[in-house]
Every structure is written in structure tokens, then in C-alpha cells.
């Protein structure tokens, strides 16, 4: 409770300082409108549904691409960790592509898929896939060999070892990789939405882009806040339970 009040005070004073900076004219309201104006936009946009529908469009794209990226990345990471040949080929490719900022996939996606949902999906998958692959690979590779040896002596082998020993044992790495993949996917989707206007649905990135074109700074600031809040919520909902589990079992500070 005490921690909650400290956080509350912190954010309240942040908004107060922002308000004062605009009120006293130190910041021009054209460059940055005050919290009142931004709040007003949020209220209107929430009521006419544009903000919610944009958030929903964005989250749908993100979840679909992220899920596919994880589903591909997880088995590939397991494979590269266990096969030298795959590691020398696919592993190196993944390492290279992971260093590529995922927004760099946008031009290619546009040429391949046109201005379509597929292009969005592709960019998000590329953002997720490589970092998930690499963390799973890392996790499996850094497994203490004693776990598999112990499992072997208890009669475990093959798929059973993979499912009941290797996967759970590499969980700390897998979770942190999936978290990183999520961050990359989120970033790349925002970049793609700002960059590409899709008629099939306006996401948060589009709202941000239109705000800039209309010089509506209240909209820009409000949408940025929404993006931050969604990111925070996702972290709490998707990853916190896992991290608590890791902390309880491994005694790690996840």
C-alpha cells in the first residue's frame, strides 16, 4: 500500500509539473498541450470509440504476429541448440537478423505483401521470431548437463526428456526471450503502423500519424500515453505471473 502511494504521488507530481510548465507559458501549448487538453481528447476519443477500436486493431495484430513468431521460434531454437549443423546455418542467420532493427522489415514487407494485414503480420513475426529463437537456443545450450543425465537414469529419454526436462529447465531463458520478443514486436508494429496506412483497420500507430498530420498535439500525446499503458498492462498480465513462478521456484529475481 505504501509503495502504491509513493507511485501515485510520483505520477501526480509529474502531471502537476507538466500542467505548470504549460500554464506558465514556459512550454508552448502548440508544441505540448497541457494535461487538461490531452485528457479532454482521451475522453472524447474514448466516447466516440475511435481509441478503443484503434487499440483493439493494434492488439489483434500484435497478438497474432507474436503468437505465430513464438510458435515458430520455440521449436527452431530447440533445434539449433541440439544440432551443430543447424546452429552453424540457421543459428548464424537468426543472430544476424536479430540485430536488424525490425522496422527495417517494413519496406520489404510492403513490396512483398502490399499495403495489407499480411505486411503487418510479417513485420511483427520478424520482430518476435529471431529473439525468441535465440533465447531458447541459449537456454537449452546453457542447461546443466546433470539434469538430462539424472533424467536419463530415471528412465526418461527422447521426447519425454525434451518436454519434461529440457523445456522447463530452460524456462528462465525462454521467458526472458519471449519478453524481449514482445518488446520487439510492439516496437515494430508501431513503426509499421506509422509508416503504412491500411484501409482494413486503423491502429494506434495510425492515430499517432494522423495526429502529426493534423498538427493535433493533444492527440499525439494522448495516443503515446495509451501505447505506454498498454505496454505496461501487457507486461503485468503476460509476464508477471511467469516471473513470479520463476522467482518462487528458482529463487531468481526475474
Amino acid at each position: 500500500m505504501k509503495r502504491f502511494f509513493i507511485a501515485l504521488t510520483f505520477f501526480a507530481s509529474l502531471i502537476l509539473i507538466w500542467h505548470l510548465l504549460v500554464k506558465t507559458g514556459i512550454w508552448s501549448p502548440v508544441l505540448l498541450p497541457g494535461p487538461g487538453a490531452v485528457g479532454e481528447y482521451l475522453g472524447v476519443a474514448l466516447q466516440d470509440g475511435s481509441l478503443l477500436s484503434a487499440s483493439w486493431v493494434t492488439i489483434k495484430r500484435l497478438l497474432a504476429g507474436y503468437l505465430i513468431g513464438c510458435l515458430i521460434g520455440l521449436p527452431l531454437g530447440l533445434m539449433t541448440a541440439r544440432s551443430q549443423t543447424l546452429n552453424d546455418t540457421l543459428g548464424v542467420l537468426a543472430l544476424g537478423l536479430q540485430t536488424l532493427p525490425s522496422v527495417c522489415w517494413v519496406p520489404l514487407a510492403l513490396i512483398w505483401f502490399g499495403q495489407s494485414e499480411s505486411a503487418m503480420l510479417f513485420v511483427v513475426i520478424m520482430g518476435t521470431l529471431w529473439s525468441v529463437l535465440i533465447s531458447v537456443d541459449n537456454g537449452v545450450r546453457n542447461l546443466p548437463p546433470i539434469y538430462t543425465r539424472a533424467a536419463l537414469t530415471m528412465g526418461s529419454s527422447g521426447f519425454h526428456t525434451l518436454r519434461h526436462v529440457i523445456l522447463p529447465a530452460s524456462m528462465p531463458y525462454v521467458i526472458s526471450g519471449m519478453k524481449q520478443g514482445w518488446a520487439f514486436a510492439w516496437r515494430s508494429l508501431m513503426a509499421a503502423e506509422i509508416y503504412v496506412t491500411l484501409l482494413t483497420g486503423y491502429g494506434l500507430g495510425h492515430l499517432l500519424h494522423f495526429g502529426r498530420e493534423l498538427n493535433a498535439m493533444d492527440q499525439v500525446a494522448a495516443v503515446m500515453i495509451v501505447i505506454v499503458v498498454i505496454g505496461l498492462l501487457a507486461d503485468k498480465v503476460l509476464f508477471s505471473p511467469w516471473e513470479r513462478f520463476l522467482h518462487r521456484r528458482w529463487g531468481l529475481n526475474g
Partner: peptide, 17 residues
């Protein structure tokens, strides 16, 4: 290896998960 012969290692080798 087989479960008729069980091994106890120097490090405990217990599964943390």
C-alpha cells in the same frame, strides 16, 4: 541407463522447476 539402477550425484541434480 535404466530405472533399475538409480544414481545419486555429487551435486543434487534436483529439478528446480
Amino acid at each position: 541407463p535404466g530405472s533399475q539402477r538409480m544414481v545419486m550425484f555429487q551435486e543434487h541434480a534436483l529439478f528446480p522447476w
